[in-house]
Nucleic acid binder design. Structure first.
Lengths: 221, 221
DNA sequence: TGTGCGAGTGAGTGATTACTCACTTTTATT
DNA sequence: AATAAAAGTGAGTAATCACTCACTCGCACA
């Protein structure tokens, strides 16, 4: 696989700028591609298979999405665009930051918000994780974007809660890394490895996870 | 990719049974394959690339390993064979189970043991995780093996420590799932996502991780 | 009713894929 | 030194890959 040579994130705007409403066949193609990429991975799915699954001629795929790469990107980019900024905008609005909230409340809102988002786009999330792990190039291109959006927003929060004496006395970067490792690990385990229906009581699940992380990160007495 | 039709785990014995010492060229092939599979993934690596990297004719690969599938398996199977049983045999011998040890000591021994093992076979671990996530077939075939080896050994341990009143009052399966999720998540984050040299003080890292998990799982007062 | 245009088609293309096989070279055994 | 087996080779093969292009179709607008 060879992704576009230039920084592909610039394509986000180009991609969604002149966004005409998709054709019926276009939707079928996207649906089929999402299904098959999530199941077998991008590299193991051929365009002819996608065409067959979508009930469309192979040429139609290339009429709308010039290459197989761009088909993948036209699935992933809107998802990325919607997902990362909304971590801030969604979560930070749900809990009122003007008043002093606890780190626990913040964490609970964050986790609940992300779980609902991933559940709503489970297959695309699977594709994204698979390709980030499988394709070094995609990973490398996404890294600065993630660092900028996540790290720069969460780190100050951690610093603040540390100052409030709520968090364990470790460097903020270390706390961040622990948080990232465990949250990300949880999402991968739950949505990519463990069976789909393993969690019955979602609220209890979040409660356990938050408690778990809080016990590991809160200030020791 | 099409893995062998029959249960491939039976091939473990067949594979390593009549284990003649490998040729110089065989080693070069394996080394090249490990390097490239870990870097680009199995599906994105061609046998001609491997041959070139190993400084060998392409035919030589197929002389020794009949198919590309079997080349992958001859890398993964010895690793799997060595890794899963040794979780029990290694860890369970390190800590003396005859006397009453704490869950914390058990956990620390387990994590230290696994980190050292993965560090010693970092690239093959990466290949295994990538292919388990990417290839549903491999995942499905590995599942019962993992369940049998891990779950059946760890669950009784959890039950026991629960009876000793060390662990939080949740079903053993839930504790197991939390443990698995966070340990597995930690390994994936650390060895597949985060940069290689991020951990300087290994002992402190284990300490933090054990504390973290213990605080989340130990009996609440 | 004609005309232009984007949507859709599918046979065709060159490149690449995993894999084969007739052959040569190296190694082991006597 | 003779011989057989094993290791190594690389041109060749059928299949599949992503992608192209000359073409048809259906529909809006004149």
């Amino acid at each position: 696989m060879s992704l576009p040579t230039k920084n592909f994130l610039k394509e986000i705007s180009l991609q969604t700028d002149h966004s005409k409403k998709p054709t019926e066949k276009q939707q079928k193609i996207i649906e089929a591609a999402i299904k098959m990429f999530a199941e077998k991975g991008y590299a193991n799915t051929s365009t002819s298979e996608i065409a067959k699954e979508a009930g469309v001629a192979e040429g139609t795929i290339f009429r709308h999405y010039r290459t197989k790469d761009r088909l993948l990107l036209s699935i992933l980019l809107p998802f990325i665009k919607k997902s990362f900024p909304s971590i801030a905008e969604g979560v930070f609005k749900e809990i009122n930051l003007d008043q002093l909230t606890s780190f626990e409340a913040f964490l609970k809102a964050l986790i609940t918000n992300r779980i609902e988002f991933i559940k709503a786009h489970k297959e695309i999330f699977r594709i994204l994780i698979k390709e980030i792990l499988y394709n070094e190039k995609l990973k490398k291109e996404l890294e600065p974007f993630v660092i900028k959006n996540i790290l720069s927003r969460i780190l100050p929060m951690i610093e603040r809660f540390k100052e409030q004496g709520e968090l364990v006395d470790l460097p903020a970067e270390t706390i961040m890394r622990i948080l990232f490792t465990h949250l990300f690990g949880y999402f991968i385990s739950r949505f990519l490895i463990l069976p789909d229906d393993i969690v019955q009581d979602e609220e209890a699940e979040v409660e356990i996870l938050v408690n778990f992380i809080m016990e590991g990160l809160k200030k020791r007495s």
